[in-house]
Amino acid sequence: MNPIIVNKLAKSYEKVNALKGISFEVEDGELFGLIGPDGAGKTTLIRILASLLLPDTGKASLVGNDVVKDFHEIRKIVGYMPSRFSLYTDLTVQENLEFFAGVFGSTIEENYYLIKDIYHMLEPFKGRLAGKLSGGMKQKLALSCALIHKPKILLLDEPTTGVDAVSRKEFWAMLGKLKAEGITILVSTPYMDEASLCDRIALIDKGEILSVNTPKGIIALFPQKLYGISTPNSFSLLNHLRTLPICKDAFLFGQEIHVTTSNSNITCESLHDLLSNSGFTNSTVTLIEPTVEDCFMQLMGNNR
C-alpha cells in the first residue's frame, strides 16, 4: 500500500471551497511536490494529512492510518513543518533541537545521521537565538526539528517561500538526501521552477488538481508547439503578439516570450517573418520545450 493515499478529499471553510474532492497517491520513498499558488488549497491539504484538520468528505491515510481515526498513530510517524516559522525564537538553535527531540521522546544523538549535514551548517550558530537567524538558516533548523524523531513521512508546507534562491537550492539538495534515506516526502511550493526537482508533482489550483505526473510526463502532455521569442523590447512585442489572430497565448518568461498558436502551419520562420514585417526585426524565434510553469498556465487556462 502506498504511504500517502488521498481519496476524494474535500474541505470548505465559511466562504471558500478550499479542496474540491481531490485524489492522488504518493509512492514509497518518493519526493512528491504539491505545486500551486497561494489559495490553491496546499496548506489545507497538508494540515488534513497531518491530522490537524478534519476533512468534510473523503478519506486520506498515511501508511495505512486514517487521518481522522488514527491520528495518534499518525502523530508518531509524521514530521511536519508548517508554512509559518514555527520555532521558539527565544531559544537557541541547540535548545530548539533538544526540545523537539524531547517532545518526541528522542535525543539529538539518536538520529544524528539524519540531520548530520544540516546540523553541520547550523553548528557555528548553535548558541544563537533562533529568532536571530537568517531566513535560510531558520528553515534549515525547522527541517532539523521536523526530522529529529526519524519520521516515516515528511510533510513540508511551503518550506522555501520567502527564502532566497541560494538557500532554496541548498534546501532541495537536503531533501534529495533525505529521500535517499527512504523517507517519503510531500512538499508544497508556489515556485514552479522547483517542480523539476521532484519525482512526481501534483499541479493544484483553486482546490482542484490539474494534473499528477512526473515533471517530464507533464511537459510531454503539453498539447501545442511552444515558441520562444527573444527580442530587446519584450513588452511591446508582447502587446503586438496579442493582437495577432494566430497567437493563442503569449507570456513573458524571463528574457523570452513563450507563444502558442492556434495554427499548426506556423513555423519558426513564418513567425519570424511575420514579426519582422511588423517592425520587430531583431527578434529570434525558436521551438522550445515547455517548462512546468508553461504547463501549469495552460492547464489553469483550461480550468477557467
Binding site: A50, S51, L52, H72, R75, K76, V78, Y80, M81, P82, R84, F85, S86, L87, Y88, T89, F100, V103, F104, G105, C145, A146, H149
Partner: peptide
C-alpha cells in the same frame, strides 16, 4: 500564534 502549537499537536504528545 507562533505556529509552534501546530508542531506540538503533530507530535505524540
Amino acid at each position: 500564534e507562533l505556529g509552534t502549537m501546530e508542531v506540538l499537536l503533530v507530535s505524540p504528545l
